[in-house]
Computed example of a mutant assay.
Amino acid sequence: MPDRAAILPDLALSRSVLDRRGDLRADPSLLTRLLADGDTRVLRLVGDRAAVIAGGRAADGTDEVTRVVFDAPTPHDLDRLGLYLGDAGGVSYVGVVADDLTASIEGDEAWRTLRQVGATLADLDAHALVTTLALANWHRTHTHCPRCGTPTEPVLAGWIRRCPADSSDHYPRTDMAVIMAVVDADDRLLLARGRGFRGNGMSVLAGFVEPGESLAAAVAREVLEEVGVAVTDVTYLGDQPWPFPSSLMLGFTARALDTDLHLQAEEIEAARWFTRDDLVAALADGSVVISGRLSISRRIIEHWFGGPLDSPELPLR
């Protein structure tokens, strides 16, 4: 039986490599200076895609490392939304939202989404792309002051937006979500299919943390609401940034106090308890498909299982 107290190691997207150097962001000339320096490395984001160099397959059948294409700055980058990402090895990195390039990348196989390549990205590349995507998603949807409606302006090297009318500052949001392996007294795992899942996809339960709520309380509430099961012994497993558009996934295990399922009809389409043999058989016959290796949900399931699972991957939404 796997160690329930173990922290999940090496979660995709979770390894911080860049030194974010928050102390430099207040310099109003930082981005202008960096984007005029040919040594600066620029990650250009077009919609939700970045240019990458795929690693292909290694001789042992595993995926090789994928690298993001970091270019030198161009004069056009000064007219785009710039995001100071930080430094690594004496090199400065800047994310640039280059949505004006959309037409020129259509059909180009070198441009990929984070969902497509995140599981095989090198650590620095993943950190840069996750940060750029999360900030870009926030900037695209928070263009006006929530107090007075005035269009806001990016400041602090892209890390906040400021209202020119009332001088209020507005910070990027991160929505915390709990995701949990619920296990019963017989060490069976609870998997469910949400209303929005594709095909035969099933996963562990998850939900957003509400205002004024602790993480353990959120786990217990979400499980009780979605499947009618009370839980105890909520234990932290690990966390993963999930910029789709702006979440932080916080992984846990929890022990079920009962096993009768009462599904929340508007949220959950199906749910059932699995032994390890049950899950292996369901994956083999295709009656169940689980999330891809990018997602913490897959790692939580494999943590309970005790090792990697051989399964086609549910497309990440």
Rank of each mutant, 00 (worst) to 15 (best):
E302L: 03
S287G: 05
R298I: 05
A271E: 06
L294R: 12
L309S: 04
S287T: 14
R272T: 13
A281I: 02
V280M: 06
V288P: 01
S287K: 04
V288W: 00
G307C: 07
V288H: 02
D278G: 12
R276L: 06
R272W: 05
L309Q: 07
V280K: 13
A281V: 10
A284K: 05
A271C: 07
V289E: 14
L279E: 09
G307K: 03
I296D: 08
L309E: 03
R272C: 12
G286P: 03
I296G: 03
D277L: 09
D278T: 00
S295E: 14
A281W: 04
H303P: 09
S295P: 02
F274D: 06
T275V: 12
E302V: 05
F305A: 03
S295W: 14
R298P: 05
R298T: 03
A282C: 09
L309Y: 00
G286R: 02
G307Y: 05
A271L: 04
A271Y: 01
P308Q: 12
G292N: 14
D278P: 06
L294E: 12
S291N: 15
S287A: 13
R276T: 04
H303R: 09
R293I: 11
I301P: 01
S295Q: 15
V288G: 02
F305C: 02
I296F: 06
D285E: 11
A282V: 09
I300S: 00
R276V: 02
I301M: 01
S297T: 13
S291C: 13
D285R: 11
D285T: 08
L309N: 05
H303N: 14
F305K: 01
V280S: 15
T275D: 12
R272Q: 15
V280P: 07
G306E: 03
I290Q: 06
V289S: 14
I301F: 02
A271K: 03
V289Y: 09
